[in-house]
């Protein structure tokens, strides 16, 4: 089965960190998936420790039937990206994973300082739904079989992703 990213990380992606970073961690994530919720603070901690050595990329992989709020949450984060606040929305959603109703998403949008009229218009845009769907399809193509689907330097990582394990994996690639 496929084990590398299709397509490779590119300018359409949501990327946090230096493009010259030695290590790239990519997550295919679902905003309502409890395992992604567990991975969220771990990835934050790892980013803090590796600093400029690590670049983090996020792509959407909502399992909409089992997680009915996941798709809309993904669209909301994409709408925030149109106002330059993707990561703020990504973070606030993962920090409040148990409340992802439309009302809650609007409250988060307000909290991070989005212009709400614009947000409200943007979340209706077909292009954002298409973006989320195309992320999902690229995940399937890349061999993602569940979330979080992690890739290190473009290769699928199937090992454990507790903080220690993940740090060790990433550090070994820094050398």
């Amino acid at each position: 089965m496929s084990s590398h990213l299709i397509p490779a990380v590119n300018s359409n992606d949501h990327i946090m960190g230096d493009h010259k970073a030695a290590v790239e961690l990519l997550e295919y994530g679902d905003y309502q998936c409890p395992y992604c919720g567990q991975a969220y603070p771990i990835i934050k901690a790892v980013q803090k420790k590796l600093k400029a050595g690590l670049r983090f990329v996020f792509r959407n992989f909502p399992l909409s039937e089992v997680h009915p709020y996941a798709f809309n949450a993904a669209v909301a984060a994409e709408a925030a990206a149109l106002q330059g606040k993707f990561w703020e929305m990504h973070d606030v959603i993962y920090e409040h994973q148990s409340r992802l109703t439309p009302e809650a998403l609007f409250a988060y949008a307000k909290k991070i300082g989005l212009e709400l009229d614009r947000f409200s218009e943007d979340i209706q845009k077909e292009s954002l739904s298409e973006r989320v769907e195309s992320d999902f399809e690229s995940g399937v193509r890349s061999g993602v079989n569940g979330t979080p689907g992690l890739f290190i330097n473009g290769l699928k990582y199937n090992g454990p992703w507790g903080e220690e394990d993940l740090l060790e994996q990433l550090r070994s690639r820094l050398k």
Partner: peptide, 9 residues
């Protein structure tokens, strides 16, 4: 191991 669906596609 869940084989995913890339092979099917």
């Amino acid at each position: 191991i869940n084989p995913g669906a890339d092979g099917i596609l």
